[in-house]
Amino acid sequence: MLRAYTIAFLIFLYAPILLLPVFAFNDGTVIAFPLDGFTTKWFEELWTNAELHAALVNSLLVACASSVLAVLLGIAAARANIRYKFPGKTAAMGLIMLPLVLPEIIVAVSLLVVAIRILGLDLSLWTVVAAHVLICTPFAVAILNASFQSLDASLEEAAIDLGFTRGETFRLITLPLIMPGIVAALLISFTISLDEFIIAFFLTGSDPTLPVYIWSLLRFPRLIPVVMALGTILMVVSISILILAEWNRRRGLRRAGVADKGGFL
């Protein structure tokens, strides 16, 4: 019975998602049953939509910049957290991890107030990047904490004893060992930034990110099938990234010689 319930629950989870490809290939502008036949014209329309391409490029730029910066900050925070003892560590880590337990609208509002009312900045993709780094860093720290935790400190000590400098030890010993964690943190941060809407909605200027652009499309019924086609592509891309991340995680576990204890996150 429990198995039947779990399968029913999975159907509930997948039901809305499965509509994406159905309506992306449906030859009609009304999103309703019965279907009107097969077409690929919505995908062709995606191909020629310049605004969409611009939004996609914006989102990719924001996601790349945010994930790289968040992972750099995450490496520093996780390393300090696992390896060193110093006064105020709990409070400092608490503040760094705080965005995990704050509703995103609060982060959006607070940065908007500072950017516009206090600093008088023009909103741009950089304000979005600054905010995304803030919300991605805790995820990067959580993943990298685990990487540094499973790192054997005696390997670093041995390298130092053998005459490596601290910089060389980090580059040649530590970095390769935590690389799977870094890749996982990059992928997670990239995906979070790419999909994030409310903060980008508050903080973008004239250049929309992809979610902000999709939001504007949702108001025009004629464009909905195009959005469905776009959604189908995004779904395929993010599932590919997810499979890549899972593969990378398992490879990391094998390399560290640890038993598989379930999925990431």
Binding site: D195, F197, L234, I239, I241
Partner: peptide, 13 residues
Amino acid sequence: FLITIPFWTSYLL
């Protein structure tokens, strides 16, 4: 993995 997959499609969509 099966449980998490649907949540990697666009939140808005």
